[in-house]
């Protein structure tokens, strides 16, 4: 029993990260109508700026700040391409563009960071926060989950309770119409991209020491993130949060069982498959066409 709990708790850091990335994906989708496949790659870019600076001997916390700034900038750059050239494109085209950009980002990232070459990623928050039924809960997991919950609450309040949030939702549906109403579409969209870039970067910095930190594996964290977002049907922040954490916990559990541990990266796929099959119970026509 205790062994199971230990492995479940071990999955919490990952779960918090998936949840945060997932909530960022939903946030991006609801505000700028893009299903963003580059989310984790943007965060990976920032994380690798931190690693590069740290390896070059810079002190850690300024490097973290520089990394977050780099992640924000990468997010803004991707956002610039999306708003500039694809503002009025269909959701499907926008998703295809982010897939193409993901290919480019991973290629550039791998080139700049020396491919699979191992890196020395500093553990930002070592140690345990508290003990739960005799099991150590790490600061990292408390932090990622806390961050995910914070972002969920903020997103929820922002979108549902503030006037700017409402404006932004209007923007996602009809950017042109919002623009005509005097909403500063471009600026607000870039703000969304920058903000999610910053949060994603910070989350990846926390989880990176646990993974083999190469650019590709970090970029591919977008898969569990989108799986979590699907649990929330790309609408509900709270369901996405729950989905992400559950995904991490299930992965943690799976890694403790020998016969399935090798296959644990198939878990997001199974989650995606079942969520989609479940959500198809009723027929739906494609977006107003």
């Amino acid at each position: 029993m205790n062994a199971l709990l230990t492995s479940a708790v071990a999955g919490l850091t990952a779960g918090g990260t998936y949840a945060l990335l997932g909530v960022c994906a939903v946030f991006t989708y609801r505000l700028v109508a893009v299903v963003n496949f580059t989310g984790a790659a943007i965060g990976a870019a920032g994380t690798f700026v931190l690693i590069a600076l740290y390896e070059a001997g810079f002190p850690i916390w300024p490097s973290v700040l520089a990394g977050i700034a780099a992640g924000t900038l990468t997010g803004v750059a991707v956002g610039y391409i999306m708003t500039r050239s694809f503002g009025e494109a269909s959701a499907s085209t926008k998703a295809a563009v982010t897939v193409a950009l993901l290919v480019g980002l991973i290629a550039i990232g791998l080139r700049l960071t020396g491919g699979q070459h191992p890196h020395n990623m500093p553990e930002l928050f070592p140690g345990s926060a508290f003990r739960l039924a005799g099991v150590e809960v790490t600061i990292a997991s408390v932090l990622t989950i806390g961050l995910a919950v914070l972002f969920t609450i903020l997103s929820d309040l922002f979108l549902n309770r503030t006037k700017v949030g409402l404006n932004l939702r209007a923007l996602a549906d009809r950017p042109m119409a919002a623009e005509l109403l005097g909403v500063r579409v471009q600026l607000l969209s870039l703000l969304v991209w920058g903000m999610t870039g910053a949060f994603t970067t910070f989350a990846l910095m926390i989880i990176a020491p646990q993974r083999s930190p190469n650019f590709m594996t970090l970029s591919l964290l977008v898969v569990p993130a989108l799986a979590a977002a699907l649990v929330g049907v790309f609408r509900s922040f709270w369901w996405t949060l729950a989905g992400g954490i559950a995904l991490g916990v299930v992965e943690g559990l799976a890694s403790s069982i020998d016969s399935v541990s090798q296959y644990r990266s198939a878990i997001p796929f199974l989650v995606v498959l079942s969520v989609l099959l479940w959500s198809q119970r009723e027929a739906r026509w494609d977006e107003a066409r």
Binding site: A95, A96, Q262, Y263
Partner: peptide
């Protein structure tokens, strides 16, 4: 393809990407 029947392309993108990652590890194992 089944999960993409009633919902459009984006879901298929997510399903196929997650399948590709899953297949990667399965084939490697």
């Amino acid at each position: 393809g089944l999960p993409a029947l009633r919902l459009r392309g984006i879901n298929l993108a997510i399903v196929t990407l997650s399948f590709a990652t899953a297949f990667d590890t399965i084939l490697a194992t």
